[in-house]
Amino acid sequence: MRRLRSLLFCGLFVVALAAMPTRVEGAEPARVVLQTQSAPDGSARLTATVVDSRGAPVAESPVTFKARTTFGWLTLAETTTGADGKARTILAVATVVEEIAVEVGGEGTVRAAILLGARRTSAPRIRPGWDVLRGVSPQPGFISPYLVPLQVILFGMILGGIWATYGYVAWFLLRIRGAR
């Protein structure tokens, strides 16, 4: 009888364990969800939620936040997920970033990306020169890889003036040749 009670107790313990929600340490990340929350000061709070194939949160998983700029992908932060499977960072100047991505794991096997709201405009996303004139370009005029209208006009006026003078002088040469 005593042995039967022990067996019954063990059976109940196993059933209870099986019924409890479990989180398997070292589970492979299967999916990552990236969320942004904009702040009035132009910054954005980025949250990446990593889950495994069963939808359970994956803790202590390395996460890399990246931002795509005009000059390429820029690493914003490298962190790890907490017990809730979430990793967070703050993007201080969200207005200059076109796209945000998050990669999980050293190899970046799981990835999610999101276009920032400010950049979801109709093409072209960067209007060469015009944005500089309006003061909203991500780069000042001398750093911008695009032609800036004001610079082009000034450059054209100076260079055009010089070469026009050369042409004027060449015209005198023709007059010398043609004069009798």
């Binding site: 005198f172 007059r175 010398i176 004069a179």
Partner: peptide, 21 residues
């Protein structure tokens, strides 16, 4: 020599060209 004959018109054109340059 560009057909130079030293005419007044040629001199005038030359002087103006040199001055501009």
């Amino acid at each position: 020599a560009a057909g130079w004959r030293g005419t007044p018109r040629q001199h005038a054109a030359l002087e103006r060209g040199i001055s501009a340059m």
